[in-house]
C-alpha cells in the first residue's frame, strides 16, 4: 500500500493552480483535504503523475454572507462547517450533515470542495447542496462558471468539472422565513458511509409544505433530488398521501445492491426516511409509522 511515485506542486494562487492544471490536464489530481485521494493512491487505484496541492490558497478558504447568498470557500474544512455561526444560522443542514461525515480526524482535514468534486454518491455534502439548491462555482482557463448543484453530479465520481477547472466555492441561498431542514442517514456505524441518507430542505407554512427538496444519497450513482417531494407540496399531508409519496419515491429510485443492502432494502429505508422527515418537519409524529401498519 505505497503510492506510485508522483510529482508534487504546491499552488501559490488560484491562477497558478489553473496553470498547473492546464499544463498537466487529466494526469494531475488536485489535493485538497486528501481524505479520499490519498487512500486511493496508496491502494494504487489512482496514480496521478502530479498532485497539485491547493492547501495553501487562503483565497479559497472561509465562509461569508453576501446579500442573500452564503458563500463557502472550497477549502473550508468539515470541522469549520461544524463550528461556523454563519452556517448554523443560514444553512444548518450543512452543520447537521457534517456531523455524520466520518470521524474528527477526517473532518479536521476534509474539505467541502474536495467532497463535492470527488462526488462519491454515498457522501453527505453532495446531497445537501442539491437540497439547498446551491450553486457550484468553478474557475477554468476561460474564467468562472456557475453550475447549479442539480447539474453538477454526473455519476459515480463524475461531475461537470473539466480536468482544467478548479472548484472554488459553493453558494447557498440564505435560509428564509419558515425554512426547515432535516438530515438523517442510516449507517452501520457512526462515521460510515450511509446505506441510505436524506438531506432535506423545506418551507413549512400553516402545517404544510410550500416547498420541499429531498436530497437522497447512497441510492444510486449520484445524489438524487426526489421528484416524489412534489406530491407533498401545497397539500394536506395525510398518511395516505405520504404513502403515495413513498410509493412514488420507490419507483423513482434505482438503487444499487451492495454488501450493506439490497436495492429493496434501500427503497425501504428511503421510504422510512421520507416518513420520518415529514413527521419531523411538520411536527406530526404519527406520520412516522406510515399508513399501512
Amino acid at each position: 500500500m505505497k503510492a506510485v511515485a508522483f510529482a508534487y506542486a504546491r499552488a501559490t494562487s488560484v491562477v497558478n493552480a489553473l496553470e498547473l492544471l492546464a499544463a498537466h490536464g487529466d494526469k494531475a489530481k488536485v489535493l485538497s483535504g486528501g481524505q479520499s485521494l490519498m487512500p486511493a493512491m496508496n491502494l494504487r487505484l489512482l496514480s496521478p503523475d502530479i498532485l497539485i496541492d491547493i492547501g495553501g490558497l487562503a483565497e479559497l478558504r472561509g465562509i461569508a454572507v453576501r446579500g442573500d447568498v452564503l458563500v463557502v470557500g472550497a477549502l473550508t474544512r468539515h470541522v469549520d462547517l461544524l463550528g461556523s455561526p454563519e452556517i448554523a444560522l443560514h444553512a444548518p443542514l450543512l452543520r447537521d450533515a457534517v456531523a455524520h461525515v466520518a470521524h474528527p480526524a477526517i473532518r479536521n482535514r476534509g474539505t467541502i470542495g474536495g467532497s463535492l468534486a470527488h462526488a462519491d454518491p454515498a457522501s453527505e455534502l453532495p446531497a445537501c447542496v442539491l437540497a439547498l439548491d446551491a450553486t457550484i462555482v468553478v474557475r477554468g482557463p476561460a474564467g468562472e462558471r456557475r453550475i447549479a448543484a442539480t447539474e453538477f453530479f454526473k455519476g459515480i465520481y463524475e461531475t461537470a468539472l473539466s480536468p482544467d477547472e478548479l472548484l472554488v466555492a459553493v453558494e447557498v441561498p440564505v435560509a428564509g422565513q419558515g425554512t426547515a431542514f432535516f438530515f438523517q442517514e442510516y449507517a452501520r456505524r457512526h462515521g460510515d458511509y450511509a446505506i441510505v441518507g436524506l438531506a432535506a430542505c423545506a418551507v413549512v407554512a400553516a402545517s404544510s409544505f410550500s416547498d420541499l427538496r429531498l436530497g437522497f444519497f447512497a441510492v444510486g450513482d449520484r445524489p438524487v433530488l426526489a421528484a416524489a417531494a412534489g406530491k407533498l407540496i401545497n397539500a394536506s399531508v395525510t398518511p395516505a398521501l405520504l404513502a403515495e409519496a413513498t410509493a412514488a419515491l420507490a419507483d423513482e429510485l434505482d438503487p444499487q445492491e451492495d454488501q450493506q443492502a439490497t436495492a429493496a432494502m434501500r427503497r425501504h429505508l428511503a421510504a422510512a426516511l421520507l416518513r420520518r422527515c415529514a413527521a419531523a418537519l411538520l411536527a406530526r409524529p404519527e406520520l412516522e409509522k406510515g399508513a399501512t401498519r
Binding site: L43, R188, R189, H190, G191, D192, Y193, Q259
Partner: peptide, 16 residues
C-alpha cells in the same frame, strides 16, 4: 474476498 479493507469490513467501534 470482496471487503478486504477497513471501510467495508466493519470492526466494532466505540460509538456503537
Amino acid at each position: 474476498l470482496t471487503n478486504a479493507n477497513m471501510a467495508d469490513y466493519l470492526v466494532p467501534m466505540s460509538g456503537e
